[in-house]
Design a protein around this nucleic acid. Structure first.
Lengths: 223, 223
DNA sequence: GTCTATACTGAGATAGAC
DNA sequence: GTCTATCTCAGTATAGAC
C-alpha cells in the first residue's frame, strides 16, 4: 500500500488559493474529505458543511456537485469500496515469492498480504469507518441496498478471486469487521493505559504494530 | 434467551391508555424503545421524538427523564451492555452437560452456548446495532469513552470469566462483530435472491438458521 | 408523572451573481 | 467552476399547566 499516496492531498492542502479545478478533480478531493468526515461522524452526524470545509470549498458547492447529501454518501461508499478492492487485488497479484518463507504456501502468503493491505488502508482516513457506518444502515432503502451490494462484492472477492472457501472467507470478513470496529472505537486511545486493553489491541493488529500505532487517528482529533 | 420476555412490551403495547407509571418503569420502556430506534438510525439519525412515540410518551418527557439525547444514548448503551453480559453469564453458568455430546469438552460447549446467546439477543430489537453504532463513535469525547469501556468489559468477560486466551477471545469478538454487521446490514433481505449472499448468510449463522430467519428485522420495517 | 405549546438552532437545499 | 445570501424545516430543549 502506498504510504504517501496522492489520495490524501485534499485534507493536507485545502484549497485556500481559490484555484479553479476540473470538476472531476474537485469531486475526487471532496470524496476524500467525505470519507474522513462520514467516517468520524456517520451519515447523519456528518454535515455537508464539514465536508466542504475539509475539502476547501463552499457548502453549496458540495451540494451542487453531488445533488444531495445522500448522493454524496453513496458516492463516498463507492469510492471506499473501489479503493478497498483495488488494494486487495494489488495485494493478491503481488506474488513476490522471492523473499517468501519457504514453509508458507502462496495461499497463506496472499492471505497475509491482503490482511496487511486492509490494515494499511487506515491511512485513507475514514475509509474503514465509512464502510462500517454504511453497513449499519441496512434499513435505509437506498443506502442499505448499496451497502449490501458492496458487502457482497467483498465476499465475492474472497470467494472467487482469492479462491477461499466459505469458512475461510467468513473468518477473513470477521477479522476485518473487528479491525474496523477497533479503528472506529479509537481503542488506541487506551493503549498502554490498561494491560487488558493493550492486550486486546495487540491481539487485533498482530502485524506491523508500530506502524499502526503511528497512523491511527486518536482522541479528540477530528479524524 | 426468552422469546417472549418482558423486555419488548414497550414496542408491542405503546402507552395509549394514558396510564401513569413509576418513572423507573417508564425509563425501562423508553430504553427498550431507544435501543430499537438508535439501532436503526444511529445516534445522530435517531430523534428523541421517534423514541418517544415508540415508547408511547411525549417527546419532551423523554428529554425530561434523561436530560439530553446524549444522556439517553449513554443510558441505552448501558442497558444493551448489561443485557449482553447478563445473557453471556447465564449461558456460561447453564452447564447442562446432561444432553451434551460426549465428544465435546465443557469449554467448547460453553462457547457454543454463549455464541447462541449472542445470536438470540437479536430479539431485543436494536441491541446489537446500538452497540455497533456506539463503537463507531470513538472520536466523540463522551460517547467514545463509554463505548471503549463497554467494549473492554466484553473482552474482560471472555478473558477472565470465560477463561479464553487472547487469541480465542479475539476470534469470538471477531465473529460477534461480523454477526452484528450482518444484522445491521439486513443482509437477510437478500437471502435466497442470490446464491452467493445466501451462502454468506448461512456461513455466518450456522446455528438455528430458521429461528434467525424468523426474528431478524428486515426491509422497510422500521426496526 | 406527563402533557401542550413554543423558542431556538443547525443544517440541507435553492437562487442567483461572478 | 465557484461563491454569498438566504429559505425552510426538522429536531432538541425549555416553560409551564394539569
Amino acid at each position: 500500500m502506498q504510504r504517501n499516496g496522492s489520495g490524501a492531498t485534499a485534507l493536507d492542502e485545502p484549497n485556500e488559493t481559490g484555484k479553479r479545478l476540473s470538476s472531476d478533480e474537485r469531486r475526487r478531493q471532496i470524496l476524500i474529505a467525505a470519507m474522513a468526515v462520514f467516517g468520524t461522524r456517520g451519515y447523519e452526524g456528518a454535515t455537508t458543511d464539514e465536508v466542504a470545509r475539509a475539502a476547501g470549498v463552499s457548502q453549496p458547492y458540495v451540494v451542487r456537485l453531488f445533488g444531495t447529501k445522500e448522493n454524496l454518501f453513496l458516492a463516498t461508499i463507492d469510492e471506499a469500496l473501489t479503493r478497498l478492492l483495488a488494494a486487495f487485488r494489488a495485494a493478491l497479484a503481488a506474488d513476490d515469492d522471492a523473499d517468501r518463507d519457504p514453509g508458507i504456501t502462496e495461499g497463506k502468503a496472499a492471505g497475509k498480504r491482503i490482511g496487511q493491505a486492509y490494515v494499511d488502508l487506515i491511512e485513507v482516513r475514514g475509509l474503514h469507518q465509512t464502510l462500517a457506518h454504511a453497513y449499519l444502515l441496512g434499513s435505509n432503502p437506498v443506502i442499505g441496498a448499496a451497502a449490501r451490494r458492496g458487502f457482497a462484492s467483498v465476499w465475492r472477492f474472497f470467494r472467487e478471486e482469492m479462491g477461499l472457501d466459505a469458512d475461510e472467507a467468513r473468518a477473513f470478513m470477521a477479522e476485518g469487521m473487528l479491525i474496523s470496529t477497533m479503528i472506529g472505537l479509537r481503542i488506541v486511545d487506551d493503549y498502554g493505559s490498561d494491560p487488558q486493553i493493550t492486550e486486546l489491541f495487540r491481539s487485533c493488529f498482530p502485524t506491523e504494530l508500530p506502524h499502526v500505532l503511528d497512523v491511527l487517528p486518536r482522541g479528540t482529533e477530528r479524524w
